[in-house]
Simulated scan of single mutants.
Amino acid sequence: MNTQPLVPPFTQESALAKVRRAEDGWNTRDPEKVALAYTPDSRWRNRSEWVTGRQEIIRFVARKWARELDYRLVKELWAHEGSRIAVRFAYEWHDDAGRWYRSFGNENWEFDDSGLMRARHASINDAPIEESERRLRWAPGRRPDDHPGLTDLGF
């Protein structure tokens, strides 16, 4: 796996790689690892919640994954320019009562010169689904390279 930093200005190739690395990081469900992709003073808007800094990011994602069980995420590049990337995504999860959801959203990202994300704005909607309707099925961790992306899934 290539761990060389991906820094702005982003090309099509580096933006695609940045999106996949972000997806891979979130699919670890490791809050401390996820937080390392952000600047120490990173600012987020996630739905209607504002989060600032790595320690708040760690608490936020830990709380999220305690509630959103068996989380599986797919991200797709939407656009990029300079130090900014826009993505769309879908993830599936269930609550502690076994009810399944598919969450759809868009994110706008801005990066510093070292490639750390300094701003993240996420808009997300949740749709209840039946377990039989799940489309994001793989073992916990990184999405396999041969698993369909959002466009291929018709999302």
Rank of each mutant, 00 (worst) to 15 (best):
R88T: 04
F104Q: 03
L150M: 02
N106I: 11
M1H: 15
G25M: 09
E76F: 04
V51T: 08
D70M: 12
R54V: 10
L16R: 15
K64H: 05
F60R: 14
E92F: 02
G154R: 06
E49C: 07
R142D: 10
L116D: 09
R43N: 06
R21F: 08
L36M: 09
D70F: 05
K75L: 08
L116K: 14
D41P: 11
N2W: 14
V34C: 05
R137I: 13
Q55F: 00
A15G: 08
H121K: 11
G149I: 07
E81H: 03
A22C: 07
F104R: 08
R59K: 14
W78I: 03
A22T: 08
Y101Q: 04
S48Q: 12
A90M: 00
R84N: 12
D96K: 06
S132Y: 11
Y91C: 02
P148Y: 11
R29N: 01
L36D: 15
M1E: 13
E81M: 07
G105P: 03
W138T: 13
A35I: 00
D113E: 14
D152G: 04
R43K: 15
T28K: 12
L36V: 11
G53K: 01
L153V: 04
L150H: 06
R63I: 03
W93S: 00
P5H: 13
R120A: 05
G105S: 02
E23P: 04
S83W: 09
E56H: 00
K75T: 06
N125M: 05
T151Q: 15
P40V: 08
T39F: 01
L69Q: 07
L6V: 09
M117L: 10
N27R: 07
T151C: 10
T52F: 01
I58P: 07
D126K: 13
H121Y: 10
P40D: 04
V87G: 08
Q55H: 07
W78K: 15
R59G: 09
F60H: 03
R84K: 10
D113H: 13
W109P: 06
D41S: 11
R59T: 05
A35V: 03
T28A: 04
R21Y: 03
W44H: 14
W65E: 00
S14V: 05
E68L: 01
E110L: 14
